[in-house]
Amino acid sequence: MKKNRFLFILVLTILSAFTVWVLWFMVMGALTPKDELLATISPALQEQSAQKSTWCFLPSWPTLQPLAELLLDTPVFFTMFWNGCKLAAPQILGQFLIAAPAAWVFSKIPFPGRKLLYMVYLVLMVLPFQITMVPNYLVLDKLGLMDTPMAVILPGVFSSFPVFIMKKGYDSIPNELLEAAALDGAGPLRSFVSIGLPLGMPGILSALVLGGIEAWNAIEQPMMFLKSTSNWPLSLYLSEITVDDLGLAMVASLMMLAPPLLLFLVGQKYLEQGIGLSISSSSNS
């Protein structure tokens, strides 16, 4: 048994190289001087190349110069980083304000037709963005919101995915607790605020972390609904960088990764717990 465990850990270590290497590549890439990048990996990015790409475990002359260049000489980077925040933060806040109470109803307050309505939410959740963008576009166009940050924020706020995850979190709260609260005279609103919110927090937080990652990551939404580049988030800026700015691209990629990575490191306990919750309660609803 002990021997087996060691073997399993070994296999896991080998497998985890796939994810750790990517992180390593990005961090080291950001510390590598430009001419070294050009010599090692740029052949891959050119149409015709006689050379092959290579890669070194460590840069031969680590430097912070690309980072300094990005932070000091690239104002557009800050604008787009900030644009990304302006799109993602309201979505997270909106999802909390709107999905958290709605999910409570789907989990704990039965009414006629609730199951059918929930099915509608589920179907909307499964539809890919490329399908919902058509109805979204029709409304945004009619409301005159196209090309404004609201065009990305509002459809995101009313996404049904956080409702689903939060409901899963609430489902694990025992009904007896609510019945006891009701006997003590707590109304349905009161039990949502004093029982649902605190006990459903792992589910809520994991939905918000997932929603935040999703919003920060968004490519299609801003690409389709934001015409003017002045509103573009960092995710679109990165896809526009060319080989000539290889060093810059490396650092910018790492900066793009930084916020979700921090969020992940801080919230991973809740995230894992919350993802797990969506399973553990699926049998008693």
Partner: peptide
């Protein structure tokens, strides 16, 4: 290892693009 395997979910697509190209181009890694 749970966290390690969960990591790719966090890495934004835009950050991955460059690496993807470097890996899978004709003259790639």
């Amino acid at each position: 290892f749970r966290s390690v395997f969960l990591l790719p979910m966090v890495i934004p697509v835009a950050s991955m693009v460059l690496l993807w190209k470097v890996l899978f181009a004709k003259a790639g890694l």
